[in-house]
Design a protein around this nucleic acid. Structure first.
Lengths: 386, 386
DNA sequence: TCGAATTAATTTAGTAACCGAAGAAAATAG
DNA sequence: CTATTTTCTTCGGTTACTAAATTAATTCGA
């Protein structure tokens, strides 16, 4: 047998970690496959698998000899139902709460009652959680953490919401409050970061080492994974693509400057502009429909939005050269004028060399996206602590 | 004694690494200081120090009791002369080679003879190295590696220069060629990346976890350190700030598109523009002087260059939120119109929130900057392999 | 049908890299 | 000269691995 290639080994923090990562990326793997993929010795795989089996984190599938010579392989699989996580998205109009399993599947959906203050949030979350657990008959003991996606500026390390315009909060220790009330570990994260974690953990970025995620919502946010790690910026505020200047003489932005990308391509700004132009579009699907049926104004708005976004995203690609750019559409633009304009603008503004090497993906977000992503943070932290 | 804080431990790959990093950042440290700084146990520090002392990598300073109670402390210090590294910068008009010590001090400077092909480079490098060693009477045995900064696109992992316009090279296995000829380990790196490594290892970025370096040369390059690691992008081409579009209707760039930052603020472009305007400035100091003495054209060129660069750098700050932005001036602009315009443009284009939190630094490069930076790559790799 | 071959997984023994606690070393204070 | 203080080392133990040998469970071929 050739000496084992250990070049990959350093990529993982530990053998346990490597095994979990491999099992998240693949439905089921045998011990020898795990050894090969992770670069960890078969002996160590046996040991780690034993520990995980004992905990109930993984299960053995019935062995399948299958016409092959040799001892039959026994596949291992994460037991998705082993643990559940709570995901919560605050800052939106509604406050959805979900319970997911270990693989990010939503088991239960339960919106919170309206709230204003942090303590009202705590109370509403407690009630919604109890109800969700009751309805889905999930024992509390199976919960292993809560993730919260906040639309605003967050200090993830300390679990503090530093500022949220939507909630009118400043320096609220959200994580501590909820952890105390619900007796569970709580992590909070900016919503764009949460979506990126979700994509990395459960979504289409699972095997990408470097990617950026761009969220098309009321405002435009982005987040970067670099070297398999979420990069938050030195003070937790990387990814402010929405405030890249597009037109120095443009509309005043709430950040105090003029012509930020948000004022041209943010959902909120587009709704305002549509209203000002006399178009009665309540959501972006409506605006796209106007454009589709010949409205020059709608078309112009969407095209200039797409151009601006493509321009800013091109800067991102030139600067960071991600493997993939994931656009997440939570405003319901769908595949229309906006997307086409983004694609075109990207093509026009990116060096030829990058065009082939950076994948561009568009995703339609469902309503559970943010809370589900939030839950993935808790899942990630839990599995990393194992 | 309170239980030791081990929160920092994970930041380092190993105790050895932590000790070296601490000793690079500090002139001299006692074992107990090292233990405190790195979070490694005193026992482990003793062990690591012993190994390093044996190798001659560090030395003990004479102990100083100094009026204090208790056993006198013994300070440890990297022995800069323990090992030397070769740095080489290719792609410029001249090809400077330097020999540095372990702390990045240049011991000897020896430009290469002219060359065109890779094999001519190998020969010229061998001759220059021999001469440099002879002149400085450094024994060959003290050399531990060669770092090469290439102006072009590089695959650092495989040691291949994928493309260099200045050299007219394509897929040249530079590292392998030189390693074979000179019997030393060779690393190559894009020049902007090399400068960033130099700043991180020996320069003002030693204790910065995240920073970006922007090189103002014939072309404009940039490089990012993120989470204490050089981030090269998924295919080794992050940092192409020079090809961010500033003016879609601008001058044709050699990348095939129009109005790239390089065509407005690159040294090469500015020289061309100055010549076209009838200004006989051979270098950028000359152009700045024209502006200083009232030339409206020179002033306009430098201001628009600075505005464009500030605009692009603002995008970088919004996207990546580095702790620090280090501009390295290798064209000799000095502190004039250009810098002022960059600073102003940054202020105008960056959200207020970032203004205070992102440090902006300008550095004047000396002629040894690139080869010295190249040598730091070899030093880094050598110390990491210990 | 039964051993040979083959592949998967486990066991065993060993190592590197740490840690904590106790102890030794080298100074000062009284 | 002894107690105190601080630095550094020694010692024993743990964790997380590895390589090599061994066992397990199957198919193939005579």
């Amino acid at each position: 047998m050739p000496p084992r290639d250990q070049s990959q080994k350093l990529l993982f923090r530990s053998a346990r970690n490597a095994v979990i990562t491999a099992l998240l990326r693949n439905e089921a793997l045998s011990r020898s496959e795990l050894s090969e993929i992770t670069g960890v010795s078969p002996a160590a795989i046996t040991e780690v698998a034993q520990a995980f089996l004992q905990r109930g984190l993984i299960v053995e599938l019935p062995s399948q000899a299958g016409g092959r010579r040799g001892r039959p392989i026994v596949q291992l699989k994460l037991d998705a139902s082993h643990s559940c996580f709570v995901g919560l998205s605050v800052g939106e109009a509604k406050t959805p709460l979900v319970i997911t399993d270990l693989r990010g599947r939503v088991l239960q959906h339960q919106p919170l009652a309206a709230y204003k203050t942090p303590s009202e949030l705590t109370e509403a979350a407690g009630e919604a959680l109890s109800k969700a657990l009751r309805t889905a008959s999930i024992p509390r003991s199976r919960l292993h953490g809560i993730g919260i996606a906040v639309s605003g500026i967050v200090n993830a390390g300390e679990g503090i919401c530093r500022y949220s315009a939507a909630l009118n909060w400043k320096d609220v220790p959200v994580a501590r409050l909820l952890a105390k009330a619900l007796h569970l570990p709580v992590w909070i994260e900016n919503d764009a970061n949460a979506v990126a974690v979700g994509e990395k953990f459960f979504g289409r970025a699972r095997s990408l080492k470097h990617f950026s995620s761009i969220i098309l919502g009321p405002a435009i946010g982005s987040a970067h994974y670099i070297n398999d790690m979420l990069y938050r910026g030195h003070d937790g505020s990387a990814g402010e693509i929405g405030h890249i200047t597009i037109d120095p003489k443009g509309v005043l932005c709430r950040c105090g400057r003029r012509g930020c990308l948000d004022t041209i391509a943010g959902g909120h700004a587009l709704r305002d502009a549509a209203k000002a132009a006399g178009l009665s579009a309540t959501n972006m699907r409506g605006l796209e429909d106007f454009a589709l049926h010949g409205s020059a104004v709608a078309s112009r708005l969407l095209r200039s939005a797409g151009n601006a976004l493509g321009f800013a995203a091109a800067s991102l690609v030139h600067l960071n050269s991600p493997q993939c750019l994931i656009f997440t559409d939570i405003e319901g633009f769908g595949n229309g004028v906006f997307r086409t304009a983004i694609r075109q603008s990207l093509e026009n503004n990116i060096m030829a060399r990058f065009l082939g090497s950076t994948q561009v993906v568009f995703t339609d977000a469902d309503t559970a996206l943010l809370p589900r992503s939030a839950a993935s943070i808790a899942a990630f932290e839990y599995l990393n602590s194992i």
